[in-house]
Design a protein around this nucleic acid. Structure first.
Lengths: 228, 228
DNA sequence: AGGAGTTTGTGAACGCGTTAACAAAATCGA
DNA sequence: TCGATTTTGTTAACGCGTTCACAAACTCCT
């Protein structure tokens, strides 16, 4: 029997999906989309796992948290499984996000092609710099950070992206929370504190490279030739 | 006694640092830098842990893998600890990286301010599109993907960043490996296969938002008002 | 000098995630 | 219909990471 961790048990759906599994569901979704494009309508856990780059046992365990959507001896119906995962992670609807900070990174994110096909819609751009307010980026007019509250409630936005320098991150986070945002993706190289009930995920570009550099150093040993 | 997992034990330094710890060392480094800027010269594990956003016990355990750099009853010398961590993760030298793909994201990365202060230097920009080759981005001339091998060996680059569309990712990864790159940071929404000995880290912008969307959906329950 | 107070470093317990292994359930062919 | 084959769903073992709790070691004050 599936262990249910969440308090919300009355809606019929299986709940309490482990974080590690949730983080992989979008990967499976992408793999299933790729299979559909190749005209594959049925696949085994081995096949799907290979496409997703994970262990087949792990894939089956992950899927078992959602329910029993495969057929023993046969495999999974690609389209059916795709829909079930999409429903589970809320991809049957579009999610509107607001990007705060339209510097290089914020502008790049606003133009990112990968969002729309994954149910993410950049609904608003906001910046604190008066010189940027009113300009058009990727077809969107940049609004003032001061209008955040109105924009968020008007357009029913629940996810915010921080793409500012690190020094502004906490201030922006506070404003996002005050505006009613309950999920934040933070690209700024700074720790942000938020109240309970608000989720924050952090993507730190430097740290990813620093981790790689550590392993590089180990590979090279102590005799690595230092460049300049 | 510290357990040593790595085969390389003859250089005197403690080795076999757990992956989870390695991923946090850059965070500690940043926190230490912040303390230095504030003029703090000594700190306790509690203080540092607070600044890094982690549990104090976890911080002490992490640091214990590096050695014994604190003083009981006193705490850590900020500058000394900063240097020790920097040395451990190879930040006493600069690491040159090549960015492949200078679309919106690649361009933003090439201009990213956060790299230089963390020992990352964008040493080359490369693209496959002839219209982009020869143009200047953030003060760097964009080279042809065909010249990757020469560029990598000339400038002693060991880290590559993939900032292309997903469809090009595997091809680019193959070329990076052929050019001698042994660490790859992949921003493309695609799985790339590489030979043993090559490290790949993946940053997937859509997936981060999809994970947040999942939690949003759960917070909202089934009665969430769908926007349009 | 010695006791009180502080803080590190670490052993041990705990919990989550991964993986292997297998029973249950389906298909297929004779 | 029945046995052989395939593949899922799940249980159990294992390993890594986190956290607690405390002895060791240091400072400071009297």
């Amino acid at each position: 029997m599936t262990i249910l961790r969440s308090p919300r048990l009355d809606d019929g759906t299986a709940r309490g999906i482990p974080d590690a599994t949730v983080a992989r569901l979008p990967i499976y979704l992408r793999a299933l989309n790729a299979l559909t494009e190749r005209g594959v309508s049925t696949c085994s856990s081995n096949e799907l796992a290979e496409n997703a780059g994970v262990n087949p046992a792990k894939l089956r365990k992950d899927l078992s948290y959602l329910g029993s959507y495969g057929t023993r001896g046969v495999g999974y119906d690609v389209e059916y499984l795709r829909y079930q995962i999409a429903r589970e992670i809320g991809q049957t609807q579009d999610w509107d996000v607001v990007i705060v900070g339209v510097g290089n990174l914020g502008s790049a994110l606003s133009a990112y092609q990968g969002f729309s096909t994954r149910g993410i819609r950049v609904a608003a751009l906001v910046d604190a710099d008066p010189r940027r307010i009113g300009t058009t980026i990727s077809g969107q007019t940049v609004s003032s950070l001061d209008d955040l509250g109105a924009i968020v409630s008007e357009r029913n936005i629940s996810i915010g992206i921080i793409a500012t320098p690190g020094t502004a991150a906490q201030e922006v986070a506070d404003r996002l929370v005050a505006a009613g945002i309950t999920s934040i993706l933070n690209f700024a190289p700074a720790l942000v504190q938020v109240p309970d009930g608000v989720d924050v995920r952090k993507v730190d570009l430097s740290i990813e490279l620093q981790i790689l550099a550590y392993h590089e150093q180990r590979k090279a040993g102590t005799d690595k030739v230092v460049n300049a």
